[in-house]
Computed example of a mutant assay.
Amino acid sequence: MLLLIPGPVQTRPEVKAAMAQDIAPWDRDFQKVYARVRERIVAVAGGRLGEHATLPIQGAGHFVSEAALRTFVAPGAKVLIPMNGAYAQRMARLAREAGREVVALPLPDTQGATAADILPALDADPSIGTVAMVFNETGSGIVNDAPGIGAALRARGTRLILDAVSAFGVLPFPLAEHPECDALVFTSGKCLEGMPGMGFAVCRIDRAEACAGNAGSWSFDLSDVLAHARRSGWGSIRFTPPVQAIAAFDVALDLYDAEGGQAARRARYQANTDILYDGTVALGLRPYLAREQQGPVIVTIHQPADPRFDLMTFVEALKRHGVLISNFYNTAAPTMRIGAIGAITPDDMRCAVAAIGAALREVLPRAA
């Protein structure tokens, strides 16, 4: 089965094989692996050891996003969130339910946010101290201009929390060049092609220290994760982790390096995206995004206007042809979400386009 969702992604056999072992999280051999993974992540993030640290939280991306919001935004403080997608809406809910005041900036889900969108809202309310944003929206496929927005925030002394869950390892945002960024968060099961189960925040150490006491939750306190690492060692973790997923992630990082790192992985995903975008257009389908707004992670397609079309029926037909896509959408208009990331190649994507065509012919047969 070819898994074409924006995460958890299809993985390589070597990554799966690393899961097939029993591991004690406190074992010294495993602690070496865990400490090594944390250092390697800082390098992928373009950070500096001693200035940045990897602070993990078990679970899905929502868990580590909430931890970053709780840690780096004080209770009752304002956080601006550009609202141009489903995952921005989820970030806003996490912040509100954590007792932070969300200043929502409505934007269309068909174009990425830029500094020109953000700055007027900050000028209108100087009490906003932090911008929290999604780098790549897997609802639609847009990419927000995190580097440009980060530079604008740095110039005015505003802090940034960046949800890079479906961007990390592919879309560049070197932390050493962005001291305004308190935390960049991502998960193990996306563009680095590991198994799901672990969230990571790459944080400024000085900011994590300064924000101790903000979280109001032991489980979601990144400052406490840092304190624990300093107290017990970088190979130690506070609560029982998904140890097999961490072991697999170490192998996934080996494969990432062997492929050529960020540039090579982005090139492969971009090739996948181009084939998928052009191929669906050739089938008579209409992409949700204009070409210039299309990111390299997921291609979202308008559902056919034919009243006979049913998304679930189509997903099941496509699965019979060996391709699995999401059976839901979260855009303003009805769409189909098709991922371009994971351990898949351009040849795989050409096969997927052919399968999409065959499934469409099954669910929308032409009248005799």
Rank of each mutant, 00 (worst) to 15 (best):
A358G: 10
A113R: 07
G148P: 01
C211D: 11
I356K: 12
M349C: 10
R38H: 15
R291V: 03
A354H: 10
R207A: 13
L122E: 07
W26S: 14
A215K: 00
W26D: 15
D29M: 03
T335L: 06
R291K: 13
G148K: 05
M91S: 04
V79P: 00
V323Y: 05
A74F: 02
R231G: 05
T300C: 15
G76E: 03
I275K: 13
G50A: 06
A53T: 01
A252R: 11
E292T: 09
R70A: 03
I338Q: 04
G260M: 06
F72Y: 12
A151F: 02
P126N: 06
A45F: 05
F63R: 12
P172M: 08
L171I: 11
R266M: 12
R337V: 06
A305D: 14
D123F: 02
S217P: 01
I237W: 10
T138K: 02
F328C: 06
E362H: 13
F30H: 03
I298C: 01
I344R: 09
L55F: 01
V315E: 13
V243I: 04
A24M: 10
A229Q: 15
I57R: 03
Y269D: 02
V9E: 09
Q89A: 13
I5C: 11
R337N: 10
I41H: 05
G260S: 07
L360S: 05
G129Q: 13
S219A: 15
P174L: 08
G261F: 07
E193Q: 14
Q111R: 15
A124T: 11
Y288R: 07
Y87K: 06
I341E: 07
V131E: 03
Q21M: 08
S219D: 12
A35F: 08
P56L: 08
T138L: 14
A88V: 00
Y34V: 00
S326F: 14
S217T: 05
E137P: 01
Q10H: 13
R28D: 11
F328P: 09
A60E: 13
R93G: 05
A152N: 08
A74W: 05
A124M: 10
T114L: 13
T54M: 09
I118Y: 02
G279K: 09
A146R: 02
R230E: 10
A227Y: 01
D224M: 10
Q262V: 13
G235H: 00
I128T: 05
R337K: 14
N214T: 00
A208Q: 00
I118C: 05
P147G: 08
D27H: 10
M1D: 15
M336D: 08
L311K: 12
V44D: 08
V299H: 08
G59C: 04
D123M: 11
T11I: 15
V37G: 06
V79F: 10
V315I: 14
M1P: 14
V143N: 09
L49K: 14
Q31S: 03
N327M: 11
H178N: 08
F173L: 11
R204T: 01
S223W: 09
A116T: 13
G76N: 04
P106K: 05
A67M: 04
A183T: 07
P174K: 06
A113I: 02
I57S: 07
P307E: 15
